[in-house]
Design a protein around this nucleic acid. Structure first.
Lengths: 147, 147
DNA sequence: TATTGTTATACTCTATAACTATA
DNA sequence: TATAGTTATAGAGTATAACAATA
């Protein structure tokens, strides 16, 4: 047992462990979503537009913690691919109202199937639904929703 | 209770929640380490060199999950600031042996103090040491060390 | 005046290919 | 030949400042 390299100091650092775990989970996500060519942020945008058709662009960006300026390129990419459409918000000509196109609706249906399977896989790794809930509870304590 | 925007779909997505929590914790880290001008990766490098003086550059990079090519600029930055030094590995003229300079040792001592205080803060948020251990256990199940 | 979407820009992090000097 | 460090480069993600149209 020749102790060649001791990396144990970082093993107890919560931020470091969060970073590594998040990177790993995102890499798995990327593999599963490669066929749909959807990145995590793109999936989240489609999902929230599906749940909030006609929602305001800035509201959606803020909900995801994405700066307005950075959201522009993201939504434009989805628009160009024909997955989303930007309409006018009734009563405010400045604001964009976001919608899924039929292609976008078909995509989110597929994406949800993949995501649900991935989520089941993660829950299995964690040891069950109780453990998943425990994880989410702890993450919430660490980083409260509006903090 | 006018339900204006429903972002609940993402609340149960483990990857998304990990991402948000990690970003939040890193932001807190940045605030606390602003005075030392150390980013998370830089702190982790100093810590592991302190624990493994003379260690090989590639070994350290691999332990942190950083690609060799990207590690070059990182270690050079610490070198230029006089915190680390690159010597020769005995028996292999290709490899670099990494050390902390006296300034680097002083910095890691300060950094550890800040980090330990931050960790105590996180443990308090989580609800105790048992909850911290539970979180790390769950993260490990999700993303095994060598996976 | 303030807000919405936008542009421009810069900085960090990450990924790949290719070079060099050693092994 | 294979490996360690390096260079160059490109792609994402994120941050700020400023602008036009609208409120």
């Amino acid at each position: 047992m020749a102790a060649r390299f001791d990396a144990s100091a970082m093993d107890k650092v919560i931020g470091y462990r969060l970073r590594r775990a998040q990177a790993y989970v995102f890499a798995q996500f990327a593999e599963r979503f490669a066929r749909l060519e959807l990145r995590p942020a793109e999936y989240s945008v489609l999902e929230l537009i599906a749940d909030n058709p006609g929602c305001q662009q800035g509201t959606l960006a803020a909900a995801l913690g994405i700066k307005r300026a950075n959201f522009v390129g993201l939504i434009r990419g989805l628009d160009v691919r024909g997955l989303t459409a930007r309409g006018q918000q009734p009563g405010d000509k400045r604001a964009n109202a976001l919608y899924l196109t039929p292609a976008g609706q078909a995509t989110i249906v597929e994406a949800r199937t993949i995501q649900e399977e991935f989520e089941r896989h993660c829950v299995e790794l964690l040891g069950g639904e109780a453990e998943r809930d425990q994880l989410l509870t702890l993450l919430d304590r660490l980083a409260p929703k509006e903090g």
